[in-house]
């Protein structure tokens, strides 16, 4: 199965927010809702300064915590990206708490986040942010192609920034947004090795299967109990009939004692 990915080149990004506006208009996001947030990061003391742009958005983790915790299947993986079918969302907000990057938000009681412009892409287009990016910091395509381009760009960037590197190749099973970083991730407010919280692993690998098992067990047990109860009930009823008919036989002439 082909997996797709975004390239996000933070070397090229100049912070113009064209992606933010294209995303908002293309996806008709309500006032106050943004799938992409741009902010500056500055390090050092005047005049020895370094600065870069933070581009906060859904990174489409392969091991997506939001998908793991979603009880309704509203969040799911498709083509390497994390999709959201809001009509399935129950508004439990587990995804809001689980995401290691703080991405999903509840909007009107439903989870809300970038779905990689699923409709546009399936119709043969490019995600809105990618289509408009003036600094060519964004690309979208097959993950292999994107990964190769990311490595090419990171290597070229190392002439300027010795710590330039690719981020997202392995993190959380590989991100669907592969980043070219001009510096170490920690310098750019990104965890070098992001983890799904252990609690979530327990939730996904132990609690959820266990709960399914328990549910099956309880159903089976209930069924068994019902069968036993019914058998007992029948036996009791039969026993009562036997007693009654014995008494009735003694009183009047019985002619249909065993018909019930």
């Amino acid at each position: 199965m082909t997996t797709y990915a975004f390239l996000l080149d933070l070397g090229r990004c100049i912070g113009c927010q064209a992606c933010v506006a294209a995303c908002k208009t293309g996806n008709e996001l309500s006032p106050g809702v943004q799938y992409i947030h741009i902010s500056e990061q500055t390090r050092g003391v005047f005049p020895a300064l370094q600065s870069s742009i933070k581009n906060h958005r859904c990174y489409h983790c392969a091991d997506a915590a939001c998908v793991a915790v979603c009880p309704t299947g509203a969040l799911y993986k498709e083509d390497g990206l994390t999709r959201l079918d809001a009509s399935q969302c129950s508004g439990c907000a587990y995804c809001v708490d689980a995401c290691p990057f703080n991405v999903p938000q509840l909007v009107n009681g439903r989870s809300n986040k970038c779905d990689g412009c699923a409709e546009v892409v399936k119709a043969g287009g490019q995600p809105w942010c990618v289509k408009t990016c003036p600094s060519n910091a964004l690309m979208y395509g097959e993950r292999e192609t994107i990964m190769a381009e990311a490595h090419r760009r990171a290597e070229a960037l190392r002439v300027r920034y010795p710590h330039a590197q690719v981020y997202g190749e392995t993190q959380l099973g590989g991100l669907g947004v592969v980043m070219v970083l001009p510096d170490q991730p920690e310098q750019l407010d990104l965890p070098a090795n992001p983890q799904i919280p252990a609690v979530l692993n327990t939730w996904q690998n132990v609690v959820q299967p266990a709960s399914v098992g328990l549910l099956g067990f309880s159903l089976a047990f209930t069924g068994l109990a019902a069968i036993i109860a019914r058998r007992n009930h029948k036996q009791e009823v039969a026993h009562l009939h036997v007693q009654n008919s014995a008494e009735e036989t003694a009183a009047v002439q019985p002619d249909h004692a065993n018909e019930t």
């Binding site: 064209a18 506006a21 208009t25 408009t132 003036p134």
Partner: peptide, 13 residues
């Protein structure tokens, strides 16, 4: 060349 800034994107707004 097919691209546009945030202000241009806000034309309808």
């Amino acid at each position: 060349r097919g691209m546009l800034c945030a202000r241009g994107q806000a034309g309808p707004s």
